[in-house]
């Protein structure tokens, strides 16, 4: 009897946790990975490259320039611990860029690249960022459009 009650409690807790997990997940759009890419836009629409450039250049929004260089000459102090974004659009398709932004750990578990559109398997997330991806689906699409335009 006691065991049954315990099991029921465990079950209830598991259901509650799953529900929480699902509700956190639900703020993310679902996507399909094909090979090493997410071929379809997260929003169903094409991003805006000009907005994407502004996101990449912004150190508290995209954060990209902390680690990457990019052909954004007005921004000094670009990092150099990750690949130069110049030519990214020649090296990768939009779908490949999208997966590398959304969750690069799908391709390399040890990558330093933050998961820009993932909420699970994160530890000690600061309260003001909890439950939020680094970029929204629309921002991801804007950055994809910008990076895809960097052909050289």
């Amino acid at each position: 009897m006691r065991i049954a009650l315990f099991l029921a409690a465990v079950f209830a807790a598991a259901v509650a946790l799953t529900a929480l997990g699902v509700s956190a997940q639900e703020s993310l759009r679902s996507y399909v990975i094909v090979g090493d890419a997410i071929p379809d836009s997260l929003t169903g629409e094409a991003g805006d490259a000009a907005r994407g450039r502004a996101i990449v250049a912004n150190r508290s929004v995209g954060l990209c320039l902390l680690c990457h260089r990019a052909p954004i000459p007005e921004e000094r102090f670009q990092g150099d611990l990750a690949p130069d974004l110049a030519g990214a659009g020649a090296r990768w398709s939009e779908g490949q860029l999208r997966l590398r932004l959304v969750d690069a750990s799908r391709l390399n578990a040890d990558t330093i690249m933050p998961p820009y559109y993932r909420l699970d398997h994160l530890q000690r997330v600061a309260r003001n960022f909890a439950g939020k991806p680094i970029l929204t689906a629309r921002q991801i699409e804007d950055v994809v459009a910008y990076l895809a335009s960097l052909k050289e």
Partner: peptide, 18 residues
Amino acid sequence: GQLNLSCANCHDDNAGKK
């Protein structure tokens, strides 16, 4: 953290870089 980094990611693996 939201950026999913460890101390080692920067200070062991990328020290000396910018």
